[in-house]
Simulated assay, not measured.
Amino acid sequence: MSSYATLPDLILEPLVKHALMEDLGTYGDITTRAVIPAGVKYKARLNAREEGVVSGMQIAAIAFRLIDPALRITALKQDGDAIAKGDTLMEIDGAAASILSAERVALNFAGRLSGIATKTHGFVQQTKGHKARITCTRKTTPGLRIVEKQAVLHGGGFNHRFSLSDAILIKDNHIAAAGGVRAVLEATKAHASHMVRVEIEVDRLDQLQEVLETGGADVVLLDNMDTTTLRQAVAITGGRLVLEASGNMTLDRVAEVAATGVDYISSGALTHSAQTLDLGLDF
């Protein structure tokens, strides 16, 4: 696991606290209080029921510790590790009641985020031999963007904007409302800070040519172009700007898009369509 894909617990704790409070409701875990005698100790194992790339181990550990700081947690796999069916990812030793009360929140985070990491890894594998990097978008679950984007990193991908304030990204509706490519780029040059990078979306080669002639952009998003047109866009640009291909980026298409020579391939599906990885907690 790379250090840049690890966040301080302090940042993640509010998200986990919110999820635990939602799950505990107004009166806590009444099932566990009813059936588990006080003082019962157990060792639980968080196990993989299918192969993939793990993410959310840090968050799962936070969930258990917030319920009971006395629980002993042993991480056997780290975020970003490849896992096989049957692998034990974490052991949790201590009060059975505490483990049971944190179980669902820990599994919800770990399964969801491992699904994103696994899907991202599949995309990244298709870019081998090419310079293209796989990146996510802002199509994330409201309130969970930071951890879903972290899961993309665990899968070997890269992050796009975290918020509207990170960079200027001029999309088709901006262009239409502002009066065209040249008009929107001229407005950007007049108002943007020198510290802010500018990306503009185009869906035709004549728009790309206008961007190159006008200047003012650092990155061009090539939206919904077929593979032949993407290859032409790379040739026209000649390395003068960073090129990002986006739109209809399915797993079976990524390799041919990477071969066109684009710098980035972005896909909202990494976060909005990832299937939860099957993980379970066993006593």
Rank of each mutant, 00 (worst) to 15 (best):
V181Y: 04
V181I: 15
R182E: 15
V184M: 14
V184R: 12
V184I: 15
E186Y: 03
E186H: 12
E186I: 14
T188V: 13
T188M: 09
T188L: 08
K189R: 13
K189F: 00
A190R: 09
H191K: 13
A192H: 10
A192C: 08
S193T: 14
H194L: 12
H194Q: 10
M195T: 14
M195N: 13
M195A: 11
V196Q: 15
R197L: 08
R197K: 15
R197E: 07
E199Q: 10
I200C: 11
I200S: 03
I200N: 07
E201C: 04
E201T: 07
V202S: 06
D203G: 05
D203A: 14
R204I: 05
L205V: 13
L205A: 04
L205K: 08
L205P: 07
D206C: 10
Q207Y: 04
Q207H: 12
L208E: 00
L208G: 00
L208F: 00
Q209I: 11
Q209L: 07
E210L: 07
E210C: 03
E210P: 08
V211A: 05
V211G: 06
L212Q: 09
L212K: 11
L212N: 12
E213H: 12
T214A: 12
T214E: 14
T214D: 06
T214N: 07
G215N: 09
G215C: 12
G216V: 07
G216K: 02
G216Q: 11
G216E: 10
A217W: 06
A217N: 03
A217G: 02
D218N: 15
D218A: 08
D218Y: 04
D218H: 15
V219Y: 03
V219M: 08
V219L: 13
V220Q: 05
L221Q: 10
L221I: 05
L221H: 06
L222S: 05
L222M: 08
M225G: 02
M225T: 07
T227I: 15
T227G: 01
T229S: 12
T229C: 08
T229E: 10
L230V: 05
R231H: 14
Q232T: 08
Q232C: 04
Q232A: 13
Q232R: 13
Q232L: 14
V234E: 06
V234N: 04
I236N: 09
I236S: 08
I236A: 05
I236L: 14
T237H: 03
T237Q: 06
G238V: 09
G238M: 07
G239P: 00
G239C: 09
G239I: 14
G239F: 01
G239E: 12
G239L: 12
R240M: 06
R240P: 02
R240F: 06
R240T: 15
L241H: 01
L241G: 02
A245H: 02
G247C: 10
N248Q: 10
M249V: 05
M249I: 09
M249E: 00
M249G: 02
T250K: 12
L251K: 02
L251I: 14
